[in-house]
């Protein structure tokens, strides 16, 4: 089990949560991806030690766990911001000015797509399509979707997320 030098309760709780997840998927075929999803939910990202631990418990080569984790866009191997901004750059949003939305966020936060602000407040990403094409241009912040955005509105929305 991965341990951390600070050994505080939060770490303990996370370990317990991971073990609970593991027991839930015991003897289930194809458990790797759901477990990585749960692990990421618990830790906020996928630390190397956690993947190594899952590899041992599931008896799957560590290299394969790493291969799966790096294949899917959902998984992150680095810590993430508290609020994840996902700007849609799908076809409809593209033709309706998603580029300008993205640029205004990048300029205002000083980070590029795929990066996290130094204070871990925001992580900025682009997604291929949110499926909200009728509301283009659109973005998601955490689980909230916002549509028909202008650059100015976008920045207003972001301010709500501390």
């Amino acid at each position: 089990m991965p341990t951390c030098c600070c050994q505080n309760n939060a770490v303990d709780d996370r370990q317990k949560a991971l073990q609970r997840a593991l027991s839930k998927y015991q003897n289930t075929k194809g458990a790797l991806i759901p477990l990585l999803q749960e692990a990421q939910e618990i830790y906020g990202y996928l630390p190397g030690e956690v993947m190594q631990y899952l590899s041992k418990e599931l008896k799957i080569p560590f290299s394969k766990v790493y291969g799966v984790a790096t294949f899917y866009a959902q998984f992150h191997l680095q810590p993430r911001g508290r609020n994840v901004i996902r700007v849609c750059t799908g076809t409809a949003c593209h033709v309706k000015g998603a580029g300008g939305i993205l640029q205004s966020i990048q300029e205002s936060l000083g980070i590029k797509s795929g990066e996290t602000t130094a204070d871990l407040r925001y992580t900025l990403e682009t997604v291929a399509c949110l499926g909200a094409c009728g509301l283009a241009p659109a973005m998601m912040v955490n689980n909230d979707t916002y549509g028909r955005l202008t650059p100015a509105e976008t920045l207003q929305v972001l301010k709500q997320y501390k």
Partner: peptide
């Protein structure tokens, strides 16, 4: 329910099955 993990190619049948099996969606 199997939640995807962010790979468009998993809409392809064999990749989707590989993904359900816990592999890279190839």
């Amino acid at each position: 329910i199997k939640a995807g993990a962010g790979a468009f190619v998993c809409g392809e049948g064999t990749a989707l099955m590989a993904s359900i099996e816990g592999s890279r969606g190839m």
